[in-house]
Simulated scan of single mutants.
Amino acid sequence: MTFTLLGADGLPYVSETPGTLGGHRRQRIYGRLDCPAALRAIARGRYTRHRVFFADERTAIAAGYRPCAACLPAAYHHWKITTR
Rank of each mutant, 00 (worst) to 15 (best):
G31T: 09
C35K: 08
P73M: 15
A41N: 11
R26F: 14
R40F: 11
F3N: 05
Y13E: 06
E16P: 10
Y76K: 12
A75S: 15
R46L: 15
A70C: 12
A38I: 01
A60K: 01
A8F: 03
T59N: 01
L72M: 15
P67K: 10
P18E: 11
S15L: 11
L5H: 03
L11A: 14
R26H: 13
F54S: 02
I29L: 14
A41V: 02
P36S: 11
L72H: 09
A74Y: 05
H78Q: 15
L33S: 09
Y65Q: 03
R25D: 07
R66E: 10
F54G: 03
R25T: 01
G45P: 00
H24E: 09
L72T: 06
R26L: 13
E57L: 03
Y30T: 08
G10N: 09
A75P: 06
D56E: 02
T4Y: 00
T17A: 09
T2Q: 13
L5G: 02
G23Q: 06
R51K: 11
A43V: 09
M1A: 01
L39R: 14
L21H: 11
I81K: 15
M1T: 03
I29Y: 00
A60Y: 05
L5I: 07
Y13S: 04
A60H: 03
G19R: 04
R32T: 13
A62Q: 08
H77Y: 07
Q27L: 13
C71F: 14
V52L: 02
T82K: 10
A8H: 04
R25Y: 08
K80A: 15
L21P: 04
E57Y: 01
A43P: 14
P67S: 14
